[in-house]
């Protein structure tokens, strides 16, 4: 196959499993208290039997309840988690918008942190240095660019994190619910920036609970449940069906169809985190 015809993302029968004996994290324990996917050896399959190909130009929305495996899927695509079963291939540079500002070091100032995160991402220092002014301007942190990041407000931190993470156009863009960063003005700016990145990327995977925006942005969607893909198709069709299902089930997205609720959910989550 030639380079051009190769799908940017392809997964064959991918499984990711957590060994519960090794992990002592309570958060994870709570999740598996349900016990559903814990097999005899104390293994918890966060993803199981995922076969998926994302073609050139596709913007794939991923929907599903909390704990369905959406974030694990993104981490696997980003190369952060290695599959325990099956095979995965992602071609081209990757940008992840998962947790903003995670790579920052509190003792460094804005410029140094931009270079640090760039180095984590493997972007050459010369490229990153040229981007500094644009990043600082986008993040709009003013005089604070010379102070250590530990002195920043959570909003400033998130804005800088967003600006760094979106500074370089990637081939593959992985987004996990970050459109709700900062105040209204910044949110609009961030939204435009993400849409722009999506337009230029070869493939996008977008995890969100904001179903209205997913319907708008994505051209394809999958629904996940218990670590498996249970529906795959055109975004509108899949998401509308998902909304209907949640409403009848009275699950976490019971009222997801109402735009008011959709807007406030990610916002509140952000606020608690900050």
């Amino acid at each position: 196959m030639t380079e051009k015809h190769r799908a940017p993302i392809s997964l064959k029968n991918v499984g990711v499993c957590y060994n519960m004996r090794l992990s002592r994290k309570r958060g994870l324990r709570k999740t598996i208290a349900k016990g559903a996917r814990l097999d005899a050896q104390g293994k918890f399959w966060a993803l199981r039997g995922i076969t998926l190909e994302v073609q050139e130009g596709e913007i794939l929305g991923v929907v599903g309840a909390n704990g369905a495996g959406k974030s694990t899927l993104l981490a696997t695509l980003a190369g952060i988690l290695t599959p325990d079963a099956g095979s995965i291939a992602v071609y081209g540079s990757i940008a992840t918008l998962l947790q903003l500002g995670a790579g920052f070091d509190d003792e460094l100032n804005a410029e140094e942190n931009i270079l640090l995160v760039g180095a984590f991402l493997g972007i050459p220092g010369s490229v990153m240095k040229k981007k500094i002014p644009a990043i600082l301007e986008f993040a709009d942190i003013g005089d604070f660019s010379r102070s250590e990041v530990r002195t920043y407000s959570s909003g400033m931190r998130a804005r800088l994190g967003f600006a760094v993470a979106t500074a370089v156009n990637p081939d593959v863009l992985l987004v996990d619910e970050v459109l709700s960063t900062g105040d209204a003005t910044f949110r609009e700016k961030a939204r435009r920036r993400i849409l722009d990145l999506m337009k230029h990327a070869r493939a996008v995977v977008y995890v969100t609970h904001d179903l209205e925006s997913a319907k708008e942005i994505c051209n394809r969607a999958i629904e996940m449940e218990d670590g498996k893909i249970i529906a795959d198709g055109p975004a509108r069709k899949i998401i509308t069906a998902y909304e209907r299902k949640m409403r009848t089930r009275g699950g976490p997205h019971a009222s997801a169809a109402s735009p008011k609720r959709t807007q406030s959910t990610p916002l509140r989550r952000r606020a608690r985190k900050g």
């Binding site: 380079e3 190769r6 940017p8 695509l77 980003a78 190369g79 095979s87 995965i88 291939a89 992602v90 071609y91 081209g92 540079s93 990757i94 156009n169 081939d171 593959v172 230029h200 070869r202």
Partner: peptide
């Protein structure tokens, strides 16, 4: 962008 070589980044 589109012309950059799309090497395998995940799944070696």
């Amino acid at each position: 962008m589109a012309s950059s070589s799309h090497r395998l980044t995940v799944g070696r």
